[in-house]
Structure formats: structure tokens, C-alpha cells
Simulated scan of single mutants.
Amino acid sequence: MTKTACVTGGNGYIASALIKMLLEKGYAVKTTVRNPDDMEKNSHFKGLQELGPLSVFRADLDEEGSFDDAIAGCDYAFLVAAPVNLMAEDPEVHNKPVTTNLRCHIPSHIRDGTDRSSHRPGGTACPRCSWRRRRPGSRAEHGISLVTVCPVITAGAAPATRVRTSVIDSLSLLSGDEKGLAVLKGIERTSGAVQLVHVDDLCRAELFVAEEAAAAGRYLCSGLNTTVVELARFLSRKYPQYNVKTDFTDDDQLLEKPRVVLSSAKLAREGFEFRYTTLDEIYDDVVEYGKALGILPY
């Protein structure tokens, strides 16, 4: 039987890629957006609907119960939309927002309104589930389990026609975007490396832990650890037309090699394999995507 998945925030970058993957794998998909009539943000849904059954619902994280129709009858729910503070006043201390992806296994017999969303305005909670009431991986109520996939800077092409944060950041050395570059530098200074993952690997990881019955808790999802200096040298060689800055001698806080490696060993132990593990592979299609979005000049 066809399984059904709900993906919140379907006009977002990661969500749109996840929807595409689910449809290609034979899932029926329900997605939510705040305004289904906003075709500037939702134009990619038409192409996705050609891949398989995709229904679009209106829902808002600030409105309790607004996700009920989208969640009803679903086997899995992926919480990809979350309220985040995207900008800091000082770009040097700008913290990259983390997208939280939750999987909720909802048995098909739960279709009534008794298990309503416990979302509180301004917080991050999964429809019909709550981190406040239940530990990650708990199956104590209605057989629902929660799993978190924590992504790093995510690159790669996706169906979404508008993006913020990670794609802009990953292309900042090519585009000259100082705020995006400040994000990369800030991540390196605070974590000891710049961590990257291809959006395809991220979506595969999300689906992997959703379908894996034994999956529980939090999973880091990072395909590669690098540095600003390494990344700049790679991009300068691969895309010489962009005149990428490679001399960072004026910034003695930047590293030649990663000082700390963010490990995805937990995913690997359970059988997940990354397909994109080099800078060349991770940046294979994001430059063309950046051109299409107007982030990079043709």
C-alpha cells in the first residue's frame, strides 16, 4: 500500500527537496504552507505534482490545530518548517539557524481529533507531538516516536525557487556576499570547522531514520568537514571566473585544516551511507542552482 507523508513548509529549500524524493519513491505527500495562493513562493508545486500525488494545505505554526488536516492519515510527518531568527544585527555573530526535522510515525487508525497539536506560539513543536511532553524516541503514547536530524550548511539544487540561509552562505565566496561569508567564518570559529552536507544526502538521511524502526534520538548529518580557506581554494580552482578571494592572512583566526570533526557516526552505525563526501561532489549542482535563483551571475 502507498504510504503517506506530511512535509511542513513545502515552499522551503530542504522541504521541497524532501517532497521530490518522497514522490519519486512512491509516497503520497501532503505539504503545508502559510499561503497556498502565493504562487511566487509555490510555483514549484506544479512540477512536483507531475511526479506523484501531492496535496497542499494551509497551516501556520502559530495557529494550534491548523496542521490537523495535513497530518490526518499520514504514516510519517517531517517537521521542516520552524520559526527561526534568520538575521542578527552583527553579521560577525550571526548564528546559522538549525532546521529541525522530526519524524512522527502515526498509525493509520489514529484519525480523530483527540491528539491535537500541543504547539505553543513562538516555539518549535511537531503537529500532534511535543518535545515538552515526550523524550526523543519515546513510543509511550499512541506509538508515536520522534527523531531529530540536525543538518549543517546544506548545498545542492532543490525545486524551491526562493531560498535563504544555507545556499546563500555556501555560495558566498563566489557571490561576494559578506554576510554569508561571515556566517561561514563564524561557524568555523565556534565549531572548529565548516561542515557541509548535500541536500540529497540530508533528505536521504531524513527518510532513512523515518523508515528505520530502531531509529531514535538525535542524528547529526554532516558529509564533510572543511575550512573557509580550503573551500576558497577549491572554489577558486573550479570556478576561476568568479575571482574568489583565497588570501586570508589578514584573519589569523581562520584555519588551514579542520580543528574539530563533526561526526555522523550514529547514522553510519545504523547503515546510512553518504553519497556526497567531497567538495567537488557537494558543489556539483549548487552553482547552476545559484545562477537560476539569481544569487550568482551567469
Score class of each variant (00 low, 15 high):
1 M>W: 13
2 T>F: 01
8 T>V: 07
8 T>M: 09
12 G>A: 05
13 Y>R: 03
18 L>D: 05
18 L>H: 11
22 L>W: 10
23 L>V: 10
23 L>Q: 13
29 V>N: 08
30 K>Q: 15
32 T>H: 08
34 R>F: 00
36 P>Y: 03
38 D>W: 06
38 D>Y: 06
39 M>S: 13
39 M>Y: 14
39 M>I: 12
40 E>C: 03
42 N>Q: 05
42 N>H: 05
44 H>I: 05
46 K>A: 14
49 Q>Y: 00
59 A>R: 08
62 D>L: 06
64 E>L: 09
64 E>M: 09
66 S>E: 14
68 D>L: 08
69 D>E: 15
70 A>H: 08
75 D>C: 03
75 D>S: 14
77 A>L: 12
83 P>I: 06
86 L>Y: 11
88 A>Y: 09
88 A>I: 00
89 E>G: 10
90 D>I: 02
91 P>N: 05
92 E>W: 05
95 N>C: 04
110 I>P: 00
113 G>H: 13
113 G>N: 13
114 T>K: 11
116 R>I: 07
117 S>Q: 10
120 R>N: 10
126 C>A: 14
126 C>P: 12
126 C>I: 13
128 R>I: 12
129 C>D: 13
131 W>K: 11
133 R>N: 14
136 P>W: 10
140 A>S: 14
141 E>V: 13
141 E>Y: 08
145 S>E: 11
145 S>I: 06
146 L>S: 02
147 V>H: 03
148 T>P: 00
151 P>Q: 14
152 V>C: 14
154 T>F: 01
154 T>K: 03
156 G>R: 11
157 A>Y: 08
165 T>R: 00
165 T>V: 13
165 T>C: 03
169 D>V: 12
173 L>F: 06
183 V>D: 00
185 K>H: 04
185 K>F: 03
186 G>A: 09
186 G>W: 04
187 I>W: 01
188 E>I: 12
190 T>W: 01
192 G>L: 05
197 V>F: 01
198 H>Y: 07
198 H>T: 07
199 V>W: 00
200 D>E: 13
201 D>P: 10
203 C>L: 04
206 E>Q: 15
207 L>F: 01
208 F>C: 07
210 A>S: 14
213 A>D: 15
213 A>I: 08
214 A>N: 13
217 G>P: 11
218 R>P: 01
222 S>F: 02
223 G>R: 02
223 G>F: 00
223 G>K: 01
225 N>W: 02
228 V>C: 06
229 V>F: 03
230 E>Y: 00
232 A>K: 10
232 A>C: 12
236 S>G: 13
236 S>C: 11
240 P>I: 07
241 Q>F: 03
243 N>T: 08
244 V>Y: 10
244 V>A: 10
246 T>M: 09
248 F>K: 09
248 F>Q: 05
251 D>A: 09
253 Q>G: 13
255 L>M: 13
255 L>A: 09
255 L>I: 06
258 P>H: 11
259 R>H: 10
260 V>G: 01
260 V>W: 05
262 L>C: 05
263 S>R: 15
266 K>C: 02
267 L>G: 07
268 A>I: 12
271 G>L: 06
272 F>V: 11
272 F>S: 06
273 E>Q: 15
274 F>H: 08
275 R>Q: 15
276 Y>V: 06
277 T>V: 15
278 T>Q: 04
279 L>Q: 15
281 E>P: 00
285 D>R: 11
287 V>H: 02
287 V>W: 00
288 E>V: 12
288 E>P: 02
288 E>T: 14
290 G>P: 07
293 L>M: 09
